[in-house]
Nucleic acid binder design. Structure first.
Lengths: 362, 362
DNA sequence: CGCCAATCTGAAAACGATTTCAGAGGGCGG
DNA sequence: CCGCCCTCTGAAATCGTTTTCAGATTGGCG
């Protein structure tokens, strides 16, 4: 009997050391009962429940998450790995996810991969080591080891921003390919026949790749050729959007429609078009993807596809919370996207060619 | 005897249940030694160290963070509460912080307050309950309870994006007031005498308030009046930036310089200026604050002040990691900001008044 | 050559909460 | 009126790791 916990250790000083046992003593019940009141209030008699809760508030008791996690094998913590928070749709999704989790008493551990699959694996490993109860990834371009590692830990997980994923991984997102295809078809209907594409296609960005493939497919279907020189890969910045457009137009003056896999690129392209003296959409149509805030405010406002990042984040949160609680509903959720037509697109210029450019395609 | 862990349970299947004891057995040492190898390798003999590490990798053992946290009273987890991730400088700061922490083996719990002090308190409470080893906040407008709560938990914390904070709270950030003042002085030097301000001033946004006060002070110093009607408070969106500029100019046509407390507002203002037929900077100068990516790419590029969000995040991470390790160096770090002059500002228009506006100030 | 000190290792006691397993008490049916 | 079952509570074991405390081994020094 080494310990004598008789002397109340200066009650007011509140060592922030209040533990379950203290509450139990104060309420005159056993620790077990306190725990029950906290976790399954319905199974304890109203009278005790009341007494215990009173003690809890009186002592300002808060559970110690470490002890709790140890015994219950759950940390009430979820993890997410996004490519970067610097891209607003990811920031938005993460924020939505966090907000939803917060309602459920969960918190979100966050990590970013900088679009590198290897790094993603590391971060996943780190999150798993920290004992997350669930994990959200982005896209469908993980290393095989990543999936293996997660599965081996028996942690529920899913991927986001895509509608389908290989290998039976659950996914919540939009149909990037289909969306891009519909955008291409929209431009085809406007009479465009000469397309340029600015895409950011690092290895690990399968979303952009899907969008690109969607465009490709739609054009092929309409027998519209898409020469290699009409496709430019650029990393995702305004700067590169500018550069992409310039390259595209200077070497292929016949292009009347430039499709970007990202709004950021598209807005860069818009800016550059203006610098080049090209009128949008009279001379050239430009489209984006994501519908970031700026898209609607730019001049001209950008035709783009809205990605419901909020819904994605929220749905991911809900799903993972359920899964962590043992309710494992397999879901492959395709959220709706919207084609938003704004001022940056218009009918293909007919005979009227662009003025400023030195040589015309004709 | 419910458990018989004699039979190696299909070694390959690796139940992810490998625990310290298993490693110890495999290496033929005591659990204590394994723990030591993992945590203080230097105090264990090279031979055993080697043997243990071999066992660790052989079994692919990873520490259970729950048990570890319980005993060591540290979670290797830090928390951050930002107003929102939707604002790029916060997203950038959080990302930088996360990257740095990742190097130290920490992970970051993230929460957002939506600019509500009450909400901030809740999120802080939640993070503390989850046992974070340290906490980063933003700004200096927390509820008193928030500080009290954190201190009572004995958790190191600091605030960011401001250079000083009340009540001896540590801070890492820039001198918002000074920066804004220098911007105002710059405009004064250009001859501007009629200022308008678009600020987002919710209660809990002390950064914007500081910036506003800085401007106010600089103008007062130069005996330039700033009527109430020249100050408009707007929430931080492009849309509101537009609206702000319109209101400002329509009711005060004499204004030649509009200072915004945020780039987002400023770019909205720029866009609206164009819509109104005002040439920037010939007719009107517009300034921002933050130097977001778009600032340099917009047409005209925005004169603004760069906030070193990356450095802030990194420094916060470093400081908290140290503090969590027991090294509590009091720091109040003022990081340098830069006034970046671009095309959106120019000399105050002399006699030449703006054309499009129905009535002139004269 | 022997003893003390210095290393290094192992046994065992926490850390704080959850939960199984029974037991106590009360209500209802026979 | 008695017994059985059901509900609710408490005792105690347990989650996996860290760390004190001592013991054992070895080396150094007198």
């Amino acid at each position: 009997m080494t310990k004598n916990k008789n002397a109340t250790p200066t009650p007011t000083l509140s060592d922030s050391k209040v533990k379950l046992g203290d509450v139990a003593r104060k309420a005159g019940v056993s620790p077990a009962t306190v725990s029950r009141v906290l976790n399954h209030p319905e199974i304890v008699s109203p009278e005790l429940r009341e007494r215990v809760s009173r003690a809890v508030t009186a002592l300002a008791y808060t559970r110690d998450s470490a002890g709790r996690a140890l015994k219950s094998r759950r940390t009430r913590t979820l993890g997410v790995v996004v490519p970067t928070l610097g891209i607003s749709i990811f920031a938005e999704g993460v924020e939505a996810m966090q907000n939803r989790l917060s309602e459920h008493g969960y918190t979100l551990l966050i990590a970013n991969s900088q679009y590198e699959a290897r790094r993603e694996l590391q971060e996943v490993a780190s999150l798993l080591e920290h004992g997350v109860d669930g994990l959200a990834l982005v896209g469908d371009a993980q290393l095989p080891e990543t999936h293996q590692l997660i599965r081996q830990h028996g942690v529920p997980y899913l991927t986001t921003y895509v509608a389908t994923a290989r290998d039976e991984v659950q996914a919540i997102g939009i149909d990037n390919e289909g969306a891009a295809a519909s955008m291409a078809r929209y431009l085809l209907e406007l009479g465009h026949r000469h397309f340029g594409i600015i895409a950011n296609l690092p290895e690990s960005n399968d979303r952009s790749m899907s969008r690109y493939l969607g465009i490709r497919a739609a054009l092929a279907e309409a027998d519209v050729p898409l020469p290699h020189s009409h496709v430019i890969s650029m990393s995702q910045t305004l700067q590169h959007g500018r550069q992409g457009l310039r390259q595209l137009i200077q070497s292929n003056p016949e292009i009347t429609a430039v499709m970007c896999t990202t709004d950021t690129l598209a807005i860069g392209a818009l800016a550059e078009a203006r610098s080049l003296g090209l009128k949008v959409p009279q001379h050239i149509s430009i489209t984006g993807f994501d519908d970031i805030e700026l898209a609607s405010q730019f001049d001209p406002p950008l035709t783009t596809i809205s990605v419901p990042a909020n819904e994605i984040g929220r749905a991911a949160a809900d799903h993972l919370v359920n899964a962590a609680a043992g309710v494992r509903i397999p879901v492959i959720t395709t959220l709706p996207h919207r084609l938003i037509v704004r001022g940056s697109t218009g009918p293909a210029p007919g005979l009227v060619r662009r003025p400023k450019l030195h040589r015309t395609a004709e």
